[in-house]
Amino acid sequence: MEIVLAILTGLLFAAGLYLMLHRGIVKLIIGIMMLSYATNLFIFLIARITRGVPAIINQAKEVLTPPFADPIPQALILTAIVIGFGIQAFVIVLIRKVYKVTGTSDMEKLNSTETID
């Protein structure tokens, strides 16, 4: 399973980056989102995955006994997802603005800041 998921993660990374390399401004944001899935999966998988046992202490017990899913990456992912959400929402609105202001969605045409004049 890990191999499959690892390959999938790799593919997600690749696809995210690939989309970010496109000229279209919408693909940029889709790429960013995909990259964030990939990152989350990566963190999730870095600790060995455990099927089906969440890190929730049973009503009858006082401590968590193995096997259980490593809660730390999960907590990290939660934070990362939320931060990612904030940034993605901002970027979505930003590209909408960029498009509205510049009238182009071609990243290669957005280079007025780097001319020498």
Binding site: F44, R51, G52, P54, A69, Q74, I77, L78
Partner: peptide, 8 residues
């Protein structure tokens, strides 16, 4: 979910 992260 399948790998034990209902919150996530």
């Amino acid at each position: 979910l399948y790998f034990g992260g209902p919150d996530v």
